[in-house]
């Protein structure tokens, strides 16, 4: 069963990324060693985001993230594990879990065709 581990980071976390990188590197290595990785990505900070809406066929482009919250999505890991408990075990090892928060969500099964 696939789950997304959504990584939330504070502004300070984004500023200190160079410092937290080794921990994230080790985390993704551990996921790989356990054979549970199904994908993932790290994102640039939210000030690099551009939000777009189409209204009456018009593009409305806005500088900044969709939700202007204190904590921002910093990246995600997709893992393939047996159940939610296993997903939560992995989520709690993610460095963001003790620094800010991680959100775990099951993926909808996609047609492979």
């Amino acid at each position: 069963m696939k789950f997304a581990i959504l990584v939330y980071e504070t502004e300070q976390d984004f500023a200190e990324r160079e410092h937290t990188m080794p921990a994230y590197y080790a985390y993704s290595q551990a996921l790989a060693a356990a054979g549970v990785v199904a994908g993932g990505a790290a994102l640039h900070p939210s000030h690099t985001a551009t939000t777009l809406r189409l209204q009456n066929g018009q593009r409305h482009v806005q500088d900044g993230p969709y939700a202007d919250t204190k904590e921002q999505l910093g990246g995600l890991f997709i893992i393939d594990v047996a159940d939610l408990d296993a997903a939560l075990d992995w989520a709690s090892r993610c460095p963001a879990a003790s620094r800010c928060a991680v959100e775990v969500r099951p993926l909808l099964p996609m047609n492979q065709g």
Binding site: A23, Y25, Y27, Q29, A30, A33, P95, A97, S98
Partner: peptide, 17 residues
């Protein structure tokens, strides 16, 4: 490296790093 990737405890993670 493997231990760092597996710990849940921020303080232990720092120690291992």
């Amino acid at each position: 490296q493997r231990a760092i990737g597996l710990t849940e405890d921020g303080a232990i993670r720092e120690y291992l790093l």
